[in-house]
Design a protein around this nucleic acid. Structure first.
Lengths: 122, 122, 122, 122
DNA sequence: GTGGTCTAGACCACC
DNA sequence: GTGGTCTAGACCACG
């Protein structure tokens, strides 16, 4: 498959699978209109229970990124550019509570940006 | 007390309490050598189970920020500047896996910094 | 052919084909006594598996809308007016459980009608 | 509990549970700030597998109607009026594709409204 | 073959 | 006690 599962990641399998699909679209390995690998296929390829894939695919459907068709499979609805926007929006949501706390405590924006740059350079 | 618990926060009570103590030091409400509020006092003030406070205080002791003194309570070991450094280090750790993922996918540092700035301005 | 398949529809292929035939009658493209397109013809024109067409045609026969004639194919039994009645009856059946639920919860008829009008105007 | 499961409903257990919670809010049996029945409690009360409740509660969280807190439970975030709006929006979404089809085929709005009224009076 | 739903039960973290 | 996640496997509908 186009991505792998890291059992030691802090992300749940579910999150890793969703991210994996989004990355595949970003990298052009999946395009708008393509079908995702079937649930059973991806499950056996990643050595994960099919139910885990089901949950991840359904989440992606809720996000509006794919659509399910009985007997056919899951089809990609969004292109590279839209996924890029979605993923950055996800990041914003994920970081915002923490950032707000730092702002409220009295830290400066530059201090936070410095932290990000530090991580980036490593 | 010097901080409150937000039941709607994504942080666990434990995390909020630990952060609350650190914030109190940063704001000068707790200084090196001061004792933390007693377990029962903080528990009733925050309307939280005392066991939750116990765990948070023990975690802070493990981090080296406070130390348990028999018959007295928990004493603060670090000052403002040190806490500042610790807290920024925590942030770095918290964000790094996510940031690395974005770097690996092909996002640019500027895009990430832009997201942080967006959050900050809100 | 006189209608198309929408892969992104929430309806199954089967439902879309059945609805497509009914629409064709309503629009006068099929009349009482006409024969339906052959299974293979419709299948290739809609890019759908012939088995799917077979099932749809059999369903229509069960509904009494067409009848299978050996060596000829499926013949249309109903006219515009009858189909109109049937289709509205289908709609009633499809919506009734949901509407009843809203009635039971305490919504007013006008609120539901308002929703329908909203959809209509879009 | 405040609602029951109908094994013969066309709605899945999951949908029935989500609807049941929303109805409970609409009927004032659950208010903003209340906690939902615990997963295990509701599961045994409705004689349903706990996983089914988990899925329903998570869906409600995705909809923004409740929020989960580890070790505490699920808390209601929305009041009666907001749920009313959400539920009508759900109905609109559920009916829209079908209504559009009828509009496209050439039916009149009044015919559809007549169908709804018929159902209502039954 | 495809996805959809549900049950059963294990193991973890948090309170 | 609470929820969170994952595995395993059954049974159904659609193509």
């Amino acid at each position: 498959m186009w991505f792998k599962i890291d059992l030691y990641s802090s992300l749940s399998l579910n999150e890793q699978i969703k991210m994996g699909i989004k990355e595949s679209i970003l990298k052009g390995k999946l395009r708008e209109g393509d079908t995702l690998p079937s649930i059973r296929e991806l499950a056996s390829s990643l050595r994960v229970n099919p139910n885990t894939i089901v949950r991840a695919y359904k989440d992606l459907e809720t996000e509006g990124i794919v659509i399910a068709k009985q007997g056919i499979g899951y089809m990609v609805l969004k292109g590279k550019a839209e996924i890029r926007r979605i993923v950055l929006k996800d990041l914003e949501k994920k970081f915002s509570e923490e950032i707000f706390r730092f702002k409220k405590i009295g830290f400066k924006l530059d201090e936070i940006l410095e932290v990000i740059k530090n991580i980036w350079e490593k």
